[in-house]
Nucleic acid binder design. Structure first.
Lengths: 133, 133
DNA sequence: GTTAGTGCAAATGATTTGCAAACAG
DNA sequence: CTGTTTGCAAATCATTTGCACTAAC
């Protein structure tokens, strides 16, 4: 399924590498800044385009935050899952809930909806980002 | 809790009225167009500002669609709930799921996250918007 | 060589803000 | 009257696109 890109570029590798290491959701801008700090010369446009391609290929997950920014993460779990995301640092945990999936299907059927997909993300503060202690 | 606005304007009433009737989620732009069609002269800015105020006051719910647009709806259910939304026409059904709420709290605790909120929306095609039959 | 991939600059599009004029109480 | 609300125009801001240039293969 995962159609590989036609050419292997320096920029492409650094993006993949950074995503591989990241334990958090990152916006395209953050990723671009991160790479810049590491000394990788890469255009913001290229970051956007590659992330988009990775999402389309299903290799990266993306979520839209409350303020409308799109954040990306390379997940270990390939199948459908959800996330518990730290609003402060982006740290995230992958979640599965079969019960929820069944419920969604049941609700959709009951109301005559078809092609129903669902989005569920939990946002909060991780231990490290919690105020006091 | 619901602090009322200081002054009652023609624009304010037409927005409230339109929301009251709507059975669907509408974007600020759509609402503005709808009012225009009805012959209400109102600025787009005013629509944005009023919707925002209504959301802050908790009188209106808003959801961000996949393409980043914010859509608004006056819900019957005052407490926390979720939605099944038609991606085509915006028609929506209010949903409650206590089981899910418990699950979310449990997961948050288990991973040491605090102040966890969650967003869950189901998107699909309602009966009327489904292709064929 | 070809042409996918890059990156700058400019465009987009929803939303927000500055500010002077309009009008509710 | 007095301060709130309005609405235009201009500003934001993340993201996208046009296009000439660079580099993979």
């Amino acid at each position: 399924m995962a159609t590989d890109p036609a050419r292997w570029t320096r920029q492409r590798s650094s993006i993949q590498e950074a995503l591989e290491e990241a334990r958090a959701f990152l916006s395209a801008q953050e990723l671009h800044a991160l790479l810049g700090r590491r000394g990788v010369r890469i255009g913001l446009t290229t970051v956007y385009r590659n992330l988009q391609a990775l999402v389309e290929r299903g290799e990266v997950d993306c979520v839209r935050t409350a303020d409308g920014e799109i954040v990306y993460r390379k997940c270990r779990t390939v199948q459908h899952h959800h996330h518990l995301v730290c609003s402060n640092c982006g740290l995230s945990v992958e979640l599965k809930n079969e019960e929820l999936e069944r419920w969604a299907r049941r609700i959709a059927r009951r109301h005559g909806f078809s092609e129903v997909s669902h989005e569920l993300e939990l946002f909060g503060l991780c231990r490290a980002c919690s105020p006091r202690r």
